[in-house]
Amino acid sequence: MRSSRRHPLLVPVLLCALAVLAARPTDGMDGDGGSGAALAPQVARLYEDAATATRQYEDGRLAAEEQRAKALEYERLLEGQREKTDAMREDLGRIARAQYRGGGGLPLTARMLLADDPDELMRGRRAVSRANQAVDRVIGENLRAEARLAADETKAQAAWRALEKRNADLARLKKKIEGKLEAARSRLEGQADSSVAAGSCPGAVRLDQPDRPADASWVAPVETYELSASFGSGGSRWANRHTGQDFAVPIGTPVRSAGAGRVLKVSCGGAFGIQVVVQHAGGYYTQYAHLAAVAVDQGDRVEAGQWIAQSGTTGNSTGPHLHFEVRVTPETGSALDPVPWLSRRGVPLL
């Protein structure tokens, strides 16, 4: 549950985040996308920017809904306060009319002269006066409460409108980033396909690394994904059975080393297209295939969660995805089912 307290700094903070994101450089992506060496990190940065914009947009949308609910609650309270005030005014009108019909309009001095017991009359007058003062106090408090509610409602509505405008701006920015990202992904895959066709693997293009959990020994090879073809499944695309686990992800998605180890092989061509094989302690190897770009060289030491490549659809592939294998030798034919293997190492694939 989100807190119902108002956050007066929410809108300025989100607008500042939007301004920073909008000002972030994209290394000339407004032009032709630059050279192949620059394209891979541009895709990675655009990928991060699009993910950041999506998260900020979703946070802003939830905040706007919260603000809208708050404004409606203020309106409900305000309407209830108005009904109470109207009822009280009606009661006072009835009292005033009853007093008038009962001689309440007679001057106090005349009533005192005509009364058999002036002391009793004065006591009655004081009681009526106290009652009237109490009613006046209640009316004053209600009017002040109504004014506060109206002011709060105005603030809530203004904050909600600001959030809606901010979200519209962010949605436009997100669409622009995603448009650039789609164009860059297409060019990146085109370059990767050309490299595979020529049998010449592209060189490593280093990527700015994200923060990695210090205590993570093993991670999933991509952060956000949908599982597609599983280990052992059959189909016309494979000579025998599927030898790995496929992760359906867009072209250019950063690919992570599942664990610490050494890059044993970077190669291209054949059914796997551009691929990386990492050697791990304990006699295990992981393979990452159908890549669009690599970020490591053969012999490099890598850590769990380190970005080592970007996904693609090179080689024998019907669409963008990462083919991931766990093997007991570096070569094809020694694969294990990656899902239970990672699960035993604290990485469930959902």
Score class of each variant (00 low, 15 high):
Gly312Ile: 02
Arg111Glu: 01
Leu291Val: 03
Leu163Phe: 08
Cys201Tyr: 05
Ala295Arg: 10
Tyr225Thr: 04
Ala281Gly: 15
Arg161Ser: 11
Gly232Thr: 12
Gln133His: 14
Arg111Asp: 00
Pro118Tyr: 04
Arg344Thr: 10
Asp27Cys: 09
Ala239Trp: 05
Ala19Tyr: 02
Tyr57Phe: 09
Glu79Phe: 15
Arg97His: 13
Arg68Ser: 05
Pro250Leu: 00
Ala292Ser: 15
Ala183Ser: 10
Lys265Leu: 04
Ile308Thr: 11
Val222His: 12
Lys176Cys: 01
Arg206Glu: 08
Gln209Gly: 13
Ala220Tyr: 10
Asp119Pro: 10
Glu141Leu: 09
Tyr284Pro: 07
Ala38Asn: 07
Pro213Glu: 00
Gln157Met: 03
Thr314Gln: 02
Gly232Ile: 03
Ala51Phe: 07
Ser35Cys: 02
Asp27Gly: 15
Arg206Asn: 06
Gly124His: 08
Ala71Trp: 07
Trp307Arg: 10
Leu188His: 11
Asp211Leu: 09
Gly140Gln: 01
Lys70Tyr: 13
Leu181Met: 06
Arg206Asp: 02
Ser230Leu: 03
Glu58Asn: 05
Gly282Ser: 03
Val276Gly: 11
His242Thr: 04
Arg206Ser: 12
Ala281Lys: 13
Val339Ile: 14
Arg2Lys: 09
Thr253Arg: 09
Lys265Glu: 15
Gly261Met: 02
Val339Pro: 15
Ala197Phe: 02
Asp49Cys: 06
Ala162Met: 06
Gly244Leu: 09
Asn240Tyr: 15
Arg45Asp: 12
Ser3Gly: 12
Arg144Cys: 01
Glu164Met: 06
Gly346Arg: 08
Arg61Phe: 11
Lys265Asp: 15
Lys180Thr: 00
Lys155Pro: 07
Ala64Trp: 11
Lys176Glu: 08
Val277Asn: 11
Thr109Arg: 14
Arg45Ala: 14
Gln67Arg: 14
Arg68Gly: 05
Arg137Gly: 12
Leu106Pro: 02
Thr154Leu: 10
Ile308Asn: 13
Lys175Glu: 11
Ile95Gln: 15
Gly319Met: 00
Val347Ile: 01
Leu14His: 14
Arg241Cys: 05
Cys201Thr: 15
Thr314Ala: 01
Glu48Pro: 07
Pro213Cys: 03
Ala17Cys: 12
Ala335Lys: 01
Leu106Asn: 08
Arg137Tyr: 08
Thr54Trp: 05
Ala192Asn: 06
His290Lys: 11
Ala64Asn: 04
Glu325Arg: 12
Val277His: 11
Tyr74Thr: 00
Leu108Ile: 13
Gly140Phe: 05
Leu39Ala: 02
Pro330Tyr: 07
Arg94Asn: 05
Trp160Gln: 13
Ser257Asp: 05
Ala115Asp: 03
Tyr74Val: 00
Gly244Cys: 07
Ser343Asn: 11
Asp91Glu: 12
Leu78Thr: 05
Asp337Ile: 06
Ser317Cys: 07
Glu79Met: 06
Leu149Val: 13
Asp246Trp: 09
Leu39Val: 10
Ala248Cys: 09
Pro202Val: 02
Thr314Ser: 11
Val249Cys: 02
Thr253Ile: 01
Ala248Asp: 03
Val255Trp: 06
Met29Pro: 09
Gly28Val: 03
Ala295Glu: 03
Ala147Ser: 13
Gln279Asn: 06
Gly244Ser: 03
Asp136Arg: 15
Ala158Gly: 13
Pro210Trp: 11
Val255His: 10
Gln209Arg: 09
Ala295Leu: 04
Glu189His: 14
Gly273Asn: 04
Asp119Gly: 15
Gly36Phe: 08
Ala204Glu: 01
Arg76Gly: 08
